[in-house]
């Protein structure tokens, strides 16, 4: 464990807590993409299949349970909670996210480190996580007025993978044979997808005005 990875995990944890806080306290998921939340639930479900077979540390297992629990409970809130589900703008959140799942699965079947069931699904979860934010970014462009909590959620979610890139650089420099191109490229693509959001987020923060994404 290094400071970059810890910062990344804490930023990631903060992003899900911000979202759960928003949904649980104000009983609203306006501006939140259910498609992105469903993709993230799939990402964690396929990433953490080894939770029962291998144990690294209390921290590792605890964080996996938190990410699994939070992502599935957010999907449950947005689909089935009587008050929250009414605030979900179904008409705007129309990204065909299943068109993201299939290519990621095919790519994982083609490009992976080992051709085993767990490894292919783990690789699939890496590719899917890289693009899982797309429905949310599209929804933000459409709804335009972004409330603070949703903006913070996307900002933290984008930031965590950025910290992970620093972690991979650190591990590459300190651990021999630490070379994982698949993870690195997927993580880089993921962070780059947030680039324009980050630009407008900082602009709004600097000029102290509401976050507006160009149409």
């Amino acid at each position: 464990m290094n400071i970059f990875r810890l910062a990344g995990d804490m930023t990631h944890l903060a992003s899900v807590l911000v979202l759960l806080l928003k949904i649980h306290t104000i009983k609203s998921c306006a501006g939140v993409s259910l498609k992105t939340q469903e993709l993230y639930a799939i990402v964690f479900a396929t990433r953490y299949l080894d939770i029962f077979t291998s144990f690294y540390s209390i921290y590792n297992t605890l964080m996996k349970l938190i990410f699994l629990g939070s992502s599935f409970s957010i999907v449950w809130y947005m689909r089935y909670h009587k008050t929250v589900r009414r605030t979900y703008d179904r008409e705007q959140d129309t990204f065909r996210h299943w068109f993201l799942v299939l290519p990621c699965l095919l790519l994982a079947l083609l490009i992976h480190e080992k051709f085993t069931f767990l490894e292919v699904l783990w690789t699939f979860s890496l590719y899917l996580e890289a693009v899982a934010i797309l429905p949310q970014l599209v929804l933000l462009q459409r709804t335009r007025n972004i409330d603070n909590l949703t903006g913070q959620y996307v900002f933290l979610l984008g930031g965590y993978r950025g910290f992970y890139i620093l972690n991979w650089i650190y591990r590459y420099l300190t651990e021999p044979h630490f070379v994982h191109w698949i993870t690195w490229i997927a993580g880089l693509v993921q962070t780059l997808l947030y680039a324009d959001f980050f630009y407008y987020y900082f602009q709004s923060w600097k000029n102290n005005k509401k976050l507006q994404l160009p149409a």
């Binding site: 990433r47 080894d50 690294y56 590792n60 964080m63 651990e175 021999p176 994982h180 993870t183």
Partner: peptide, 10 residues
């Protein structure tokens, strides 16, 4: 081992 470990990450 010559294989480095990746699965210890979240």
């Amino acid at each position: 081992p010559n294989k480095s470990y990746m699965k210890d990450e979240l």
